Simulated scan of single mutants.
Amino acid sequence: MGWVYVIIGGLIEIGWATGLSLSKGFTKPLHSIITACLIVISFYFFSNSMRLLPIGTAYAVFTGIGAAGTAMVGMTFLHEGVSILKVGFITLLLIGVIGLKMSDNEKKDQRRTEEWPG
């Protein structure tokens, strides 16, 4: 369940990071209110994930989802520049996030086998 919390929090982070841009420095009230609400919701899910996952892994995955997703939103909807290098580094970031998640699962599997004498 911890990974579900991290993923939901990371996806909502994309929304609040985009909202920060759209709020124009919190000068647009509606965008600012929505952004503030998304920040609270995102951190709620993230904080719940840390009860179940190692903090380093949870935070790296949370911010990785947010960073990659926000970059994709910027390129797709906010007319930010697109380049092969940018897409390549976003892909590399996502591979790193997946690797962190997989390495956490390996440690859990290893701990389980160590707990059961055999």
Rank of each mutant, 00 (worst) to 15 (best):
A60M: 11
S42Q: 01
R51H: 15
Y59D: 08
F77C: 03
T76N: 07
R111I: 13
V87E: 10
D104C: 09
E115L: 15
Y59H: 00
I84S: 07
V82A: 09
S47G: 04
T57N: 00
K86Q: 08
S103H: 12
P54M: 11
E114Q: 12
G56I: 05
S83E: 12
Y59W: 04
L53A: 05
D109C: 12
K86A: 10
S83P: 07
E114H: 14
S49T: 05
L53P: 10
I98Q: 10
L93E: 02
G69E: 01
T63H: 01
M75C: 00
F43H: 09
L78N: 02
T113V: 12
G66Y: 01
V73Q: 04
Y59N: 05
K86I: 07
F77P: 00
A71L: 01
G81W: 08
I90Q: 08
G66P: 05
A58P: 12
G74V: 00
V97L: 08
L92E: 06
S103R: 14
I84G: 07
L85E: 12
L93M: 09
G96C: 04
T76A: 13
S83M: 03
R111C: 08
K101Q: 11
A71W: 01
S83K: 09
I98R: 03
T57P: 00
D109S: 14
V61A: 14
E114R: 14
N48K: 15
A67T: 15
A60W: 05
R112A: 15
L93N: 12
A71V: 06
I65Y: 00
E80L: 05
E80I: 06
L93A: 04
N48Y: 13
L94I: 14
I55L: 15
I90P: 07
M50G: 03
L93Q: 05
V61Y: 02
G64H: 01
F77M: 04
P54V: 07
T91F: 15
L53T: 03
G64F: 02
V73M: 04
Y59M: 06
R111A: 15
I95D: 02
K107Y: 11
S49A: 15
G99V: 03
I84E: 06
A71F: 07
G56E: 07
P54E: 13
M72H: 06
I98F: 12
L93P: 11
G96T: 02
F77K: 01
D104K: 05
A67N: 08
